[in-house]
Design a binder for these strands. Structure first.
Lengths: 235, 235, 235, 235
DNA sequence: GATGAATGAGAATTCATTCAT
DNA sequence: GATGAATGAATTCTCATTCAT
């Protein structure tokens, strides 16, 4: 089970990816011509996407070999190119799904005041972000680490993160916290913290139990960005 | 000029690298046997190290080609292998220098209270960290992004970051801030924030002027981790 | 036609090599993982092995370039590494086959008395040895000239030659020939003679017709090692 | 001490090599311009030649790196090319000396009858051959293993071996032994045996004490090629 | 006479992508 | 729809030879 109790986000084989495909319509004979996939095809596609996520997680996008993915998916090279035009195309498919998850997440961030209710809302959001990262981490890493060559894919990431950043900026403004240096830098810092903390968790660098670390993260962010008062140990 | 006014850290061609090399003494015919380099050799070595930092910064460690480095250093392929066994060996050389810079930095972090003096000390440290990152960023990234294959090199990074983390943990403890979820997660979060924020700055993702963003970072960290009181806009 | 009339030994693509390969099972992404080869794959593998034997014969193992082999097999560089990890791995494959041929040969050496029957048996063995050498010469040379880096491969050669040497030693003992300096040196001498004579024949250094030189070799060995009486020209 | 008590053959820095040099007279500025070497120069030259022999012995001519030689001689690459035009030129220098030793040896082979006196003479020759091989083995190997590219150098080897072979053929003829298959093949076999046995001894493949193995070799050759009667154990 | 440094052509190896069955 | 096999361009690495001091 995840920290928040929400069900883990799924790889949307159906809906979201089809859109990535529609670009390709018309280019005859090229691979990745998803058209109407039957049951078997959909299963293979999912196996490939899942395998890619696994391999990317282990090795990172750049270092991942098509061969690794194919082997992990128990299929062949030839099959891979039946579903994707190339490695980047595969990343794109995952990116589309990931971006839509993140955007949805952004839309769902409620007001975050400096009080307990605000903290609860913040905690909810952070928990969902961690969950999403647990699944799509490799894609997000690829974005953050500038491993994406394709403009289109990169754009997707920027857009998704901007969506979240903008919404958080709005919530900060509502909380009326004074931030020297301006909002932009603050948002940058917050997103940086979010992403790397999540990576730290996903990679095992940051240990401690699920809810424990979520508490820590919540506390820090609440104080640092949303004006929550600090509790000091009574010396 | 740098944010802090300190002079930028230098690549320590001399002392620190020689030690990394001494392992190789005796191994026959292997390159990278620094031996006693004359003036010309030292110059070439430095050209290569500097070029590597440039190329790594532009392309990332993994994507960087030996050819890029060699071209950037205006020397030949053969020469490269006269100084390093391979790309990893070069990273090692840089890592040794970087680690010593970071360790030195750690030792120099004074008490960070929640008051103005604490803020000043924190700002000084963060400024120096940003400067170091500006120079050795690629190496630090390689560490943080798990791109390092070599155990030895990886160990160096862990050690250096632990040194900083431990010192900051000490300073947090002194500030008596109560952190639910414990110190470990908090330190993890702080280091994550530091590293990624620095990367954001170095890569241009986080814009705003030098001192402006340093202020923002200082404020956030001071509040989030060291109990600085929050100023709220008088609505 | 060969000296003995036996059909030339074949490169055993199937059975023998597969075993050498099984070590690699599980090691990720490594080439030379023969898996289950289909007809086409088996053909290519054999083409490569045959080509290697040709090229090694012409240039010697060390001087042979992968490129030569690939060109001689009318295939591509990439393909080579689909079947072998490197040149050494290819040698290993050949060595396995060669060793089994030689071992089989050893088991088949009958008693060699000083009489005509003994001579016939000796001649039969020598003829088969020459045939095997004609085919696997390059591999045997690599063994004898200490060109093999890999322990495993070297071991194979030692074992095979020991098998032959031991059997011949047994036959000498049966012939009750007195050899000052002991058996070991004698066997060494005999194997040395066998190998180099075969090389001389294969390389054209030692000319004369097939059966003629086989006669010479037989005579010398029969006299030198198995106590055959010497015929002297009636001056 | 050597098996025969003769003093070990020396690398004739002075006399023999100068002749190899005279060819180069006239080619201005080229390396290997020995001219008149002073004491220091002669010492360096000898160091290089000795080192070469050592390295060739360990690795074989082909696999030997100029770097190995230079390091073993405790000198520099630059210096190497002050004395030799290239690696082959160095081999040539050694080959000249070796060839003259062998030729001298050939001239000195007395009659080899099937009796005890013949055996003594044969033993003396074989001992000297083994000694020469102990020193010049690598050069002889290079000849026998077809590692020599240069025609001129190769010619030297053929000539030297022909000289020995011819003389031995003469001695065989004198001994009136009947050899089916003709003299050529017999001589080939004898030379093959000599060379490989020597290599086996030098490389440690054939163990047993110095004089012991010399006895064995002598016995075998005496019987196999010179008509010595065979002693059989009284069963 | 000697040496450290540099060079670049050649060889090995990897891997995304295409082909044929 | 699937797969084993093939490809070759891109990359790393080696080493004999030359250069500059």
């Amino acid at each position: 089970m995840t920290a928040t109790g929400d069900r883990a986000p799924e790889v949307g084989v159906g809906a979201s990816y089809k859109s990535a495909t529609e670009r390709d319509v018309g280019s005859v004979g090229l691979p990745a011509q998803q058209r109407e996939l039957r049951a078997q095809g959909r299963r293979t596609l999912r196996r490939l996407l899942d395998a890619a996520l696994r391999v990317f997680a282990r090795r990172g996008y750049h270092a991942a070999r098509v061969d690794d993915i194919v082997r992990s998916a128990r299929t062949s090279h030839g099959t891979f190119y039946l579903y994707f035009a190339n490695k980047e195309d595969l990343l794109r498919a995952l990116a589309v799904d990931c971006a839509s998850q993140l955007t949805e997440l952004a839309d769902d961030i409620g007001p975050i005041g400096s009080d307990a209710a605000g903290r609860a809302e913040l905690r909810r959001f952070l928990g969902r972000f961690l969950d999403t990262y647990r699944h799509y981490g490799p894609v997000i890493r690829a974005w953050m680490e500038d491993q994406v060559g394709d403009r289109h894919v990169d754009r997707l990431g920027v857009k998704a993160f901007t969506a979240i950043g903008d919404r958080l900026a709005l919530r900060m403004r509502e909380a009326s916290v004074r931030l020297p240096g301006g909002e932009a830098a603050a948002v940058g810092a917050l997103m940086a913290l979010l992403e790397r903390f999540s990576y730290g968790v996903a990679s095992g660098r940051i240990s401690a139990g699920d809810s424990t670390r979520l508490d820590t993260l919540t506390t820090i962010v609440h104080r640092g960005f949303f004006g929550a008062p600090v509790e000091v140990d009574p010396a």
